[in-house]
């Protein structure tokens, strides 16, 4: 007869809970009948378990349910909220786009200003010619250009821009007779301002929709 080792204690504890395989349980029960130390250890374990089972079950001192705030539950998103949110985002993108266009249109005239200045006298000279002389002369100039390409190219070399610039002037005769009506100006800065205002308005509306939904949700909680 030997005093039980820890492996025996483990098996006795498992036997107590009926968690020992059948053949092992049978062997251990046979030993229990023959070994008083083993039997005493088994009784100790059994008593410890019995004492623990005597512990009274306490009732919870309060309810542990969660409030919406504790659980961090947010109000359901109102249906209109994403609509306004996306509209606001799109408007903001258009706004940025318009700012870009604004910058482009503002820089283009500045780059072309010296060329316009250089072309102005030529245009001023050619304007009366174009108005006084008739179209046939212009038509005759065209074949001449084809007949003497080298000379014409040399002569025309500095002129392409001025010719291009003069082209509206050449078209001007008809208009020059009457007072030229100012073309309607498309104001990009105005568009940008309107888009910015619209983006802010849409974002505000989205925020108000969300805020009101959360207020209603809290009142309901």
């Amino acid at each position: 007869m030997t005093s039980p080792n820890f492996s025996d204690i483990e098996n006795l504890s498992a036997l107590l809970d009926e968690k020992l395989p059948a053949d092992e349980a049978r062997r251990l029960r046979a030993r229990l009948e023959q070994e008083p130390d083993l039997r005493a250890a088994y009784q100790n374990l059994r008593q410890a378990r019995a004492i623990l089972r005597q512990l009274p079950a306490r009732r919870a001192p309060r309810n542990f349910t969660l409030s919406r705030q504790m659980a961090g539950v947010r109000a359901p998103t109102p249906r209109l909220f994403p609509l306004f949110q996306w509209a606001s985002a799109l408007t903001a993108i258009f706004f940025l786009f318009s700012l870009g266009l604004n910058a482009l249109t503002a820089s283009a005239p500045a780059a072309e200003a010296p060329m316009l200045a250089a072309a102005a006298p030529f245009a001023a000279e050619s304007l009366p010619t174009a108005t006084e002389e008739s179209a046939p002369m212009l038509a005759a100039a065209a074949p001449a250009a084809t007949a003497e390409p080298g000379a014409e190219l040399r002569a025309a070399a500095p002129e392409p821009t001025s010719a291009k610039l003069a082209a509206p002037a050449a078209d001007a005769p008809n208009a020059s007779a009457e007072t030229p009506a100012p073309a309607p100006q498309f104001s990009w800065p105005l568009v940008s301002t309107l888009l910015a205002a619209l983006a802010v308005l849409l974002a505000l509306t989205a925020w108000v929709i969300r805020w009101r939904a959360e207020q209603n949700f809290r009142r309901g909680a």
Binding site: F6, I9, E10, L12, S13, A14, A41, N44, L45, Q47, A48, R49, I51, L52
Partner: peptide, 8 residues
């Protein structure tokens, strides 16, 4: 098993 033994 150890806990029961120590408790006892």
């Amino acid at each position: 098993a150890r806990a029961r033994l120590r408790l006892r």
